[in-house]
């Protein structure tokens, strides 16, 4: 089986400071991988390198494209990479306003990716937008409201709908539940889990919240100071951590 995404020897430095280094992994179709670690451990740098927002200094990111099979996204031309970013990839930001157009209605936000790939029929676009709002549990009569009038949880769900409307195969998520209160987090996680399973999505989820990866991720990668300290199946890593840092991380979670 060809991996959907395959990273090999990724290294990104900021001057003398290491962002992340020597990261390699394969992500297979339908698999969800979690990346955990403390703040400043290089999780987000790695995610940005994978999603093409940053160019890694060393290494390859091979994505199995629909048309041409495995391609190195670091070395492909920018138009190709941007095309991937609005068709086969999705990126969910931690802070929903970063990923939304706040002065455009919810329907317009969801429809943007459709129009970007050439949809030119208003009724179809609107139908799909309202369909997707329903799937992320936003009432359909809010379709013409701006995201500024939405709560934090609704904005995050709208961002997810906007990203998934073109049926991407790979979703990058940067702390998707950060900044939301726990009950809203739980609903969002439940929704995400449903969508990932129904659509057969592959995903890379960066988070510092171990509960998120416990629920969503099949596999786990633990990062510390830009290095990968431990990898494995999620339950295996969380229940039987081997590396000292992972043991510290797991034992730091308060048990209620």
């Amino acid at each position: 089986m060809t991996p959907l995404l395959s990273a090999a020897g990724i290294r990104k430095t900021y001057g003398a400071h290491i962002g992340c280094t020597d990261v390699s992994f394969d992500l297979f179709p339908g698999e969800v991988m979690g990346i955990v670690g403390e703040s400043g451990s290089g999780k987000t740098t790695l995610l940005n390198c994978l999603a093409g927002h940053l160019a890694p200094d060393v290494g390859e990111v091979i994505f199995d494209t629909r048309a041409d099979g495995p391609r190195d996204t670091v070395r492909m031309s920018e138009p190709e990479r941007r095309m991937l970013a609005r068709t086969d990839w999705a990126f969910v930001h931690q802070h929903a306003p970063d990923g939304l157009r706040m002065n455009v209605s919810a329907g317009g936000n969801v429809g943007e990716r459709l129009m970007a790939v050439g949809a030119r029929n208003y009724s179809d676009i609107r139908q799909q937008a309202s369909d997707w709002l329903g799937r992320v549990e936003i009432a359909e009569d809010r379709i013409d409201d701006r995201p500024t009038t939405f709560s934090g949880g609704m904005q995050q769900r709208l961002q997810i709908a906007r990203n998934l409307v073109t049926a991407p195969r790979l979703v990058f998520m940067d702390e998707p539940t950060g900044g939301l209160d726990v009950s809203v987090q739980a609903r969002l996680l439940d929704l995400l889990r449903g969508l990932v399973r129904d659509m057969g999505l592959s995903a890379v989820i960066v988070t510092h919240d171990l509960a998120v990866v416990r629920l969503l991720a099949d596999r786990l990668m633990v990062m510390k100071d830009g290095h990968v300290t431990e990898t494995g199946l999620t339950d295996q890593v969380l229940d039987d951590p081997q590396a000292p840092y992972t043991q510290l991380l797991v034992s730091s979670v308060l048990q209620v």
Partner: peptide, 18 residues
Amino acid sequence: SLEEYGLMHVKLYEDIAR
């Protein structure tokens, strides 16, 4: 330069929606 003009239609979409 990349002919990414989907956004222009978002403006027209907003017009019709409103």
